[in-house]
Write a protein that binds this DNA or RNA. Structure first.
Lengths: 186, 186
DNA sequence: CGAATATGCCAACAACTGTTGGCCAACATT
DNA sequence: AATGTTGGCCAACAGTTGTTGGCATATTCG
């Protein structure tokens, strides 16, 4: 039984990995259960057994942790750059949780809901902890710049924004985030 | 024949309008020919007759003109704000050409290609006309902020970025665009 | 008037989708 | 050794999709 469990968990993980990759590459609709099964090297019906439905599979692989650093512990003038570098580094390391959501959000209400939930529970509180006023607006503006960067990088693949850890990008988008955080105060 | 032509052009326009609305609301995959036909009040086969295929229909309704103002004619310090206000105004007036592309780009390569083409032919030249250096990078950074704003507004519907012509949004995103345009010069 | 041409609908096809149930082999338990 | 359980595959269903061809109606033209 122990051996069986191990083997089953392995399969489950293989399916999840394949699903993450395909969802991130093709979005929700274009990713078929058959394709996921094919990539995982098992039968389509196995995907259903392990995850119940396509929606269940998506829910299982699209929840993730941004692992934002403790912004309050950073020197105030370094926060923007640190935030941008954090995202670029994670993306470079092949973490595509956010890309999965980004691609699926266009056509899938559940992906949108999950994205808003991640924003509300992981981003907004951190911003509120360091911004002096208008935290909600500031957090949304930051989200717009970071998500726009992700879109241009992973979906559109604009050349200057797609390279690994481009220094100029960190520098400038960092300044922008810094401005959204602390600038234009009244 | 003249009357017939007129009626046929009317139908064609009704189909295109319905397609634009549905593509903008549901993306490429989730928009079915049957749904477009239903909204236009005609038979699905008519859509094929008029536009050849679903891809043809999409191509016909997803090409559009950003109608960017002449940036070089504006006072330098007003360009960023003007650009942001231009987009917000057009969106407010119900022009959803860009939203069509934004939603479809996640899963449709042709939408991505068209978006890159619009960027290259309509955005990049204007930016190159006023930026002193690194026009390509600057233009891509501006695109990332504007598209991110559109994403948060139309797809995610974040509350503070979704209202009509919010003054604070014009002000701050305008400053950001201004920075991407002229800031961080070397 | 008759012929031709446009404009439209109906019905169907073939492919693909998520999903289900039954069957088989290997292993663990008794 | 008999039994139940687990991990897996196969085949099929039911719905939806883009797409096509044939048929009806009305308008235009000779």
């Amino acid at each position: 039984m122990a051996a069986a469990r191990i083997r089953s968990d392995e399969t489950r993980e293989r399916i999840a990995r394949a699903a993450r990759r395909l969802f991130a590459e093709h979005g929700y609709e274009r990713t078929t259960i058959r394709a996921v099964a094919g990539e995982a090297g098992i039968d389509p019906s196995m995907v259903m057994r392990y995850f119940g439905s396509k929606e269940g599979l998506f829910a299982a692989v699209s929840s993730f942790d941004l692992r934002l650093p403790d912004l309050a512990a950073l020197p105030r003038e370094a926060v923007g750059r640190a935030l941008v570098r954090h995202f670029l580094t994670r993306w470079e390391q092949g973490d595509d949780g956010l890309v999965v959501l980004l691609r699926a959000a266009s056509s899938n209400e559940e992906a949108r809901a999950r994205m808003r939930e991640i924003f509300a529970s992981q981003v907004l509180p951190r911003i509120a902890g360091i911004a002096e006023d208008e935290a909600a607006l500031r957090a949304e503006l930051i989200a717009s710049q970071i998500l726009g960067l992700a879109f241009c990088r992973f979906v559109l693949r604009l050349p200057h924004l797609s390279g690994p850890d481009a220094e100029a990008v960190v520098e400038r988008v960092g300044s922008v985030v810094q401005f959204h955080l602390f600038g234009a105060a009244r």
